[in-house]
């Protein structure tokens, strides 16, 4: 299980933002994506998750190995915590949601509709969804938004446990999650503006 990214370039809204991205992520490893706002961390994660095609370069990973979690959690307000998790588990061909409920301490909330959860609780439910996908490589975009200190620690433990079991994670965050992780500074890959001398170059 290995994610190899080679000379990747990606664009947002048709404008190149990152180029020459090169790194390898192996089982048991976590990488933190760093860089100022708007540098293209989300674009990179979406490209790696296969939601948008790269401009150039290649991403190689085992098929169906990537679980993507963004700012929006994919939760339905009128469904209960259990129903939300069961749905995503079934979509990803899994059956058991108990470990996810336990890992994020959701047992007390299991019967509540998602609309009655606080922002932090919702976030925990959204992250619990990662566990029910059964996929080894997690791609997380600012996963700790609206989590309190205790929940951040809890989340850190869940990721650490995932790494121990041979998983891997790529996380765009500025917070220290309490486990050992490499850092990938995205600003190094910022796409250089090219001179536009001919009409061709207007068409990336």
């Amino acid at each position: 299980m290995e994610l190899v990214v080679t000379d990747l370039a990606c664009a947002r809204g048709g404008v190149p933002v990152l180029e020459g991205v090169d790194f390898t992520l192996v089982a048991g490893q976590a990488l933190m994506l760093r860089g100022p706002n708007g540098i293209g961390k989300t674009t990179l994660l979406r490209t790696l998750a296969g939601l948008q095609p790269p401009l150039a370069g290649s991403v190689s990973a085992p098929t169906e190995s990537i679980a993507y979690a963004a700012h929006a959690d994919g939760l339905k307000a009128t469904l209960t915590v259990t129903e939300n998790l069961t749905f995503w588990a079934r979509i990803f061909g899994q059956t058991d949601i108990a470990p996810a409920i336990e890992a994020f301490d959701l047992a007390d909330l299991a019967g509540r509709p998602a609309q009655n959860l606080s922002a932090g609780q919702k976030r925990r439910l959204g992250l619990a969804r990662l566990l029910v996908t059964g996929r080894p490589i997690w791609m997380l975009d600012e996963p700790t938004v609206s989590l309190d200190a205790a929940s951040v620690a809890q989340f850190g433990r869940a990721v650490a446990r995932h790494l121990d079991r041979g998983g891997a994670a790529l996380i765009a965050t500025h917070i220290d999650l309490g486990f050992e992780a490499g850092v990938l500074d995205v600003s190094a890959f910022r796409a250089r503006p090219r001179r536009i001398d001919s009409f061709d170059e207007a068409f990336a």
Binding site: V15, A191, P193, R194, I196, F199, E201, A202, F203, A204
Partner: peptide, 17 residues
Amino acid sequence: EIRARRIRAMIARERMA
């Protein structure tokens, strides 16, 4: 349309630089 696209690309480049 082609000229408009070129202008668009130039503006985007200005913004990045």
